[in-house]
Design a protein around this nucleic acid. Structure first.
Lengths: 364, 364
DNA sequence: TTGAAAGCGATACCAA
DNA sequence: TTGGTATCGCTTTCAA
């Protein structure tokens, strides 16, 4: 009976030991054949690998290796809400792509986990076999973040929330938002309106008063609102008179619905500042539906400069941030942390106003 | 010196044993506190959990548990080419979303791996710590598939390739493609053209002759072309006279570029059959650029009925397939296989022609 | 209800 | 250059 079979003749599970016994050598040597080729003669190594191929041994077991080495070769990504949401936003997609590319260099895969608020979710996150976590844009105090941190593994944050001890990769949100508002006021707009992504994870939508703006747990939106407010005030526009509409998700349809009433009114704003390109696309759609000319009768701005911004008709004036680069930056930080290097989050990346065809002077 | 600290006073890594010793009980009991609450008194369990919380013990180590149980709690997904590509296609996104949702029920996460042809990729796939693999639409004989199969773990395929022993979830591609062609010929079209996604992973693009169509390693495209051919011939249109244009990726821009020349010619087709919605959107764009009225001067059809198809202007006549459902179906198969149930792939899901505004009778 | 002990499969030190 | 051996942290019979 072959050594590679159990008593019943069925193929036994192959391990390093099986192979070692088959070859009459120790399993340490077999291990070395896979992990440290310099530790044995090329001839022996070749013999081992050849026999492994013959027997169909696929190499060291990932789990056992993971336990022993303290590494699994996967980085968890905590994305807000459902995956579909994360995938649907081109911004997030480009980030993930950059991240995946960078992590590949160390053979690391991406383990995606939705960060819903539900309880059993937390357990899954805590018990996930990953070497590090990337937190992709979550609100403050989200329980999933604590779960991700619970094993003390490296954590890198994209955009939000700010976490003590975890490097954060972000942009100059205030500056970006301020620059679009300044652009509009310089064009002569005196009557603005703002559309924002969720400020808190409570599903609320509609007008967001100052109190709600300031208590936003989504720090990015809080910062963009603050930047917009500062620029408005600087231009002599009282921020309290600027309506801020909150949508329950970063979804064009929701934005279109949110601004429909506003734009139908006779005293409608002459410009709508959307705090993401996705939302801006919705505003464009709503304007089209109402027969409002953009930018003739209404100016619209976005934020992010996702590919859709340039493709939109009219093309979107927006704030450009280095989308894919951010994925690579986060990936590099993760790799550094896993190597044990002390890394600090980079300074907020600068943003740049991109003026396209969706903004013009207000109608006279 | 506390038992929870090493000789140097620094916090030692916490394990079941640490906790057990601290409490003066065996680690089996601590393990049971986490995994089989019915195996110990509620009082003891509460005491253990309380102490764990106090000490900051996050529960059993995922890797060790994985090794012991033979499960990690992750399912690998093999996606074609870069992740960005997979994410960009709404079809794929919906699939992934459905899959993630279904797998969540068993606490399984998604480990995404790009299936490039490169060599070191294969190693990463072979050594990935996953309980099963989902192959998302790869060409025949792609080496990554063999790598995924090498550990004998369950494999479920979406669409392609057909793999012995692995259940496949697919649709009636022939029927779908035939139905659009039939729709067009019934409208009176006699001059068609076809735009297709890659037929092989060799990066070739341009006209695809019959030989190349038949030797396509992307089975889905081969089947759709076959279905289209059959319907054309049945309507008395010799298939050899129908130009088939191959794009190097499922990208609207590429499709637009591919058909630009064709549509600019005086003897242009009266209808373009795109074998995916993404490609169809590109055709629409090209038509718009050339000032061709759709459907007045040109009919365009898609395939998939992705959300973009209904949103397009004009809205796209296309073939509907149950996108998110397929993710759930694949997820259910994976769960079944992991439970050791013998599962068979379902019959190809039926598809349905959805007639919208992008098709009409040819100009007279 | 609790605990002792045998692995799960591999790696890395150290000795030969 | 090769091998012995302790160890990674946990789960799970089985016996007490």
């Amino acid at each position: 009976m072959s050594k590679t079979e159990g008593d019943d003749g069925s193929p036994r599970r192959l391990t390093l030991l099986t192979l070692a016994q088959d070859l009459g050598i120790s399993r340490a040597t077999v291990s070395n054949a896979y992990n440290r080729p310099d530790q044995l003669s090329p001839a022996l190594r070749a013999r081992i690998l050849a026999r492994a191929a013959e027997l169909g041994f696929p190499g060291p077991d990932p789990m056992a290796r993971g336990l022993r080495r303290g590494r699994v070769g996967a980085v968890g990504v905590l994305v807000d809400e459902g995956l579909s949401y994360a995938f649907t936003d081109p911004t997030a997609v480009l980030f993930l792509d950059g991240l995946a590319r960078e992590l590949e260099a160390d053979g690391l895969g991406l383990l995606l986990h939705a960060a819903r608020a539900a309880g059993d979710d937390l357990e899954r996150i805590r018990d996930a076999a990953v070497d590090a976590w990337v937190v992709q844009s979550l609100p403050e105090r989200h329980p999933a973040v604590a779960a991700a941190q619970s094993r003390g593994r490296p954590v890198v944050v994209l955009d939000q929330p700010r976490l003590p001890g975890a490097p954060l990769v972000g942009i100059d949100d205030e500056g970006g938002a301020a620059s679009v508002v300044r652009h509009l006021t310089e064009l002569g707009h005196r009557c603005l309106s703002v559309v924002t992504m969720p400020l808190q994870a409570d599903g609320r939508s509609g007008p967001a008063d100052l109190r709600r703006q300031r208590s936003a747990t989504y720090q990015v939106m809080r910062r963009r609102l603050a930047g917009a407010a500062a620029a408005a005030e600087a231009a002599g526009l009282p921020w309290t008179e600027v309506p801020v509409l909150e949508c329950t998700a970063n979804d064009p349809d929701l934005a279109a619905r949110a601004v429909a009433d506003l734009l139908a009114r006779p005293d409608r704003p002459t410009a709508v500042v959307a705090l993401s390109d996705q939302l801006a696309l919705g505003v464009l759609r709503a304007a089209a539906t109402l027969g409002l000319a953009v930018p003739g009768e209404l100016s619209v701005t976005g934020f992010d400069d996702s590919p859709a911004a340039a493709a939109a008709r009219p093309s979107l004036t927006t704030v450009a941030q280095p989308l894919r680069d951010r994925g690579e930056t986060v990936g590099a930080l993760v790799r550094g942390l896993l190597r044990g290097e002390p890394v600090a989050g980079p300074a907020p990346a600068p943003v740049r106003l991109v003026v396209r065809d969706s903004t013009a002077a207000p109608p006279s």
